[in-house]
């Protein structure tokens, strides 16, 4: 059976570079197969743009399997589109109706400047990770397996938190452009494991400090991030971050800052 096809109207944010002003532009997407992914639909639109001698729509993507965290933009005001727990690359066109009008916009946040069209610079996330999202280990010979026992409950929480792919949908969906869910997931991931205990206080202090340096907003606990998260990271992770940060802030002796610089 031939898959059903549909005609869509796209309104896409076009911006030549970080310094240029952007605007919404209208495109037709005719004969879209319901079996296409959203990005494949854009690929087809771009083929047409290229053959018309126009600049194709820039969007970020890599694995197209929903696991790398590269892709993502707003579809009708919802990060990664209407399908719950799904990245935009895994969203298929069968979830849309013939004749629908779709508004595609990049993540909008001071901390995520637009580079081009739907592509934003998410280096702020990398700097948050660099501030404390790691555990220090002795390199060299591999440690013995299972030398450190991990309680099942801790492993479960850490795995739930580690599901974060760092796509930035939480920031995009948040009315405050806060990155609390991302940072909360990273802090909870390492903070619940035995291997993460040594740097737990310092990690919370440094990562939360970096969070405000990057000009992300402040969390007001409303939960839009959780609804947008393609990995469905729970709000509990933000509370875990707050808990670690409060505890560390009370008990800190002021040694958490990195020296130099």
């Amino acid at each position: 059976m031939k898959p059903a096809s549909m005609n869509l109207t796209l309104h896409v944010w076009r911006q030549a570079n970080a310094a240029a002003p952007g605007r919404m532009e209208r495109y037709d997407a005719p004969n879209v197969s319901e079996d296409m992914s959203f990005l494949e639909m854009l690929d087809v639109v771009n083929e047409q743009l290229i053959s018309d001698g126009k600049e194709p729509i820039a969007f970020e993507h890599d694995c197209r399997e929903g696991i790398c965290g590269s892709c993502g933009f707003m579809v009708n005001g919802v990060a990664h589109g209407p399908q719950k727990g799904t990245t935009i690359c895994q969203l298929h066109m069968r979830h849309f109706k013939d004749g629908e009008e779709l508004f595609l916009e990049p993540w909008r946040a001071t901390a995520f400047p637009v580079l081009k069209d739907l592509v934003v610079d998410r280096a702020a996330f990398d700097r948050i990770i660099a501030a404390g999202g790691y555990v220090s280990v002795r390199t060299g010979s591999a440690p013995d397996g299972n030398a450190i026992s991990v309680p099942k409950e801790a492993a479960d929480i850490a795995m739930d938190a580690a599901a974060c792919i760092g796509c930035g949908a939480c920031v995009a969906a948040c009315p405050n452009a806060a990155a609390a869910l991302f940072t909360g997931a990273k802090i909870s991931h390492l903070g619940t494991l035995p291997q993460g205990q040594a740097e737990r206080s310092r990690r919370a202090l440094r990562m939360v400090e970096q969070l405000s340096l990057e000009q992300f907003g402040s969390c007001t606990n409303i939960g839009e991030c959780v609804a947008a998260c393609p990995k469905q990271i729970p709000l509990e992770m933000i509370a875990r971050m707050n808990r670690d940060h409060l505890k560390a802030a009370w008990t800190s002796r002021g040694e958490h800052r990195s020296g130099g610089e």
């Binding site: 309104h11 944010w13 919404m24 707003m74 009708n76 005001g77 508004f103 916009e105 909008r108 946040a109 001071t110 901390a111 009315p175 405050n176 452009a177 806060a178 405000s212 000009q215 992300f216 907003g217 402040s218 007001t220």
Partner: peptide, 12 residues
């Protein structure tokens, strides 16, 4: 802080 974190509003 939050107003500064998103200076450009979404169209939708």
């Amino acid at each position: 802080i939050n107003n500064k974190a998103r200076p450009t509003a979404y169209a939708k």
